[in-house]
């Protein structure tokens, strides 16, 4: 009996102390880590259309169309299909694609979750966290070329 009563006392203690652990979401936005990976932001000005992000993407989320001069025409990203691994950001030599902290996006159909380059450009920062700044100390580690061949196209 003592064990049962101890258990019941524990839950009653939690009931009476009035502490809540859950967050009232829309009113109270959660703090996210500066490293959190949300919707991408794309900068056409920076992009050199090297297509490394498209190559590294594990499940073909990024789709790039270039003309015969290798000038970029389209940059589409299916954020509903993306697994948020951040490899595109990691391989990008010019920080043209970044993962913001923004995790709030909706769409009624799958089509609405395919973002083109304009939509990707206008993705807002989450709580004004600049991902680039928070990631600066580690950039050296990601873009180390290694000893092997570098397969830029």
């Amino acid at each position: 009996m003592i064990g049962i009563l101890k258990g019941m006392a524990t839950t009653m203690k939690h009931a009476l102390d009035g502490e809540k652990f859950t967050v009232q979401y829309p009113e109270e936005t959660p703090e996210v880590s500066a490293r959190f990976r949300g919707v991408h932001k794309f900068s056409q000005e920076r992009c050199i259309w090297c297509r490394q992000c498209e190559n590294v993407c594990p499940n073909d989320t990024i789709h790039i169309v270039t003309d015969d001069q290798r000038q970029g025409e389209e940059y589409n990203l299916h954020i509903g299909q993306c697994i948020y691994c951040r490899l595109c950001e990691e391989v990008c030599p010019v920080d043209a694609i970044l993962l913001t902290q923004n995790f709030e996006f909706t769409g009624d159909t799958k089509d609405e979750l395919v973002y083109n380059k304009e939509q990707l450009k206008s993705v807002p920062w989450y709580k004004d966290i600049d991902p680039l700044e928070s990631r600066e100390p580690d950039r050296g580690a990601w873009i180390g070329e290694g000893d092997g061949e570098v397969d830029y196209q």
Partner: peptide, 25 residues
């Protein structure tokens, strides 16, 4: 783990030969 890796469950934090991030500043 979110502070360390950037994600809560789908971390993608290890890399061959190390890890992706140092500890957060």
């Amino acid at each position: 783990l979110e502070e360390l890796t950037g994600q809560r469950m789908m971390f993608n934090y290890f890399r061959l030969g190390g890890v992706a991030w140092d500890l957060p500043e």
